[in-house]
């Protein structure tokens, strides 16, 4: 059992390494991508400077806390898009029969598919996340907590993408739905929870789980409480298990691109 896990980790890391090597073939493009992503994220600070000139507290967040929220949003995005880039085109992979190559390998299918490429610009997001953290707080404990949280958040985001992507096992034309679903998390993630009311707030702890990926982490980092930490860990595990179960259930319906819709 242990060697199986060890071998799986070895292959996954090798796969990510090769993906990174591909991105680094053109060094200039690689570095420009990262730098532009950093600048891109940084440009939004201007928006918040103006908003905080109108009011000191927005949605229960101070300016620094918004920066930290951005740190979490960027970090979460960075983890999922760097390590698991291909999960965001899972619908297409399923529809065009590109799962075949992973199925015939004696390794975990899902991991092999989603780790087969990396997104260079997501490294920029990861770096930006840590910069925001250091602006707000420099300490070993917050560094470790932040790292743990963005890994959890990244897994949550990836799991949601697995679920949306797996819909392609059952339905046609789910790509746009998956794209929209995934962008929901990104769009909401950078705004303080407190500006929303009612139903929308419950969405953040159910269908669009940025509550667990971003809001609770911000709270815990500001004012440590063990329940928040446990909730995030628990929900991450739960969503991940759900995603895996759905993917493998769908896999039995996999038609390896044989299912072309015929026109009459």
């Amino acid at each position: 059992m242990l060697t199986v896990v060890k071998n799986q980790i070895k292959v996954t890391l090798l796969s990510i390494k090769y993906g990174l090597m591909r991105q680094m073939l053109n060094k200039t493009t690689f570095i420009t991508n990262i730098i532009f992503m950093l600048l891109n994220n940084a440009s939004f600070i201007l928006q918040w400077v103006i908003l905080y000139s109108l009011k000191d507290n927005i949605g229960g967040y101070t300016f620094k806390q918004v920066l930290l929220l951005w740190g979490f949003a960027a970090g979460t995005y960075g983890v999922s898009h760097f390590f698991f880039k291909r999960v965001f085109s899972l619908s297409d992979i399923i529809n065009t029969g590109k799962l075949d190559a992973s199925i015939i390998q004696p390794k975990n299918i899902l991991l092999s598919v989603i780790t087969s490429d990396v997104e260079a610009s997501a490294l920029g997001d990861l770096i930006y996340g840590y910069i925001m953290l250091f602006i707000c707080d420099i300490s070993i404990s917050s560094f470790l907590l932040f790292t743990l949280f963005i890994i959890c958040g990244g897994i949550i985001m990836t799991s949601i993408a697995i679920i949306y992507g797996s819909l392609a096992f059952w339905f046609n034309n789910t790509e746009m739905l998956a794209d929209t679903g995934n962008s929901l998390m990104v769009n909401f993630a950078t705004y303080p929870e407190g500006i929303f009311k009612g139903v929308v707030k419950t969405l953040f702890y159910t269908l669009i789980p940025i509550g667990f990926a971003n809001y609770i982490p911000v709270q815990v980092l500001n004012d440590f409480n063990v329940f928040g930490l446990l909730a995030v860990l628990g929900v991450t595990t739960l969503i991940l298990c759900m995603a895996i179960a759905i993917f493998y259930k769908g896999l039995k319906n996999y038609s390896s691109s044989n299912l072309m819709s015929a026109r009459i």
């Binding site: 060697t3 292959v11 090798l14 796969s15 090597m21 591909r22 073939l25 190559a101 004696p106």
Partner: peptide, 20 residues
């Protein structure tokens, strides 16, 4: 099935890892 940007040698090594 091969990684296009890698050499055949690296590819073989990768497949070797896949099959433990």
């Amino acid at each position: 099935q091969l990684w296009m940007h890698l050499t055949p040698y690296d590819n073989f090594k990768f497949f070797g890892a896949i099959y433990d």
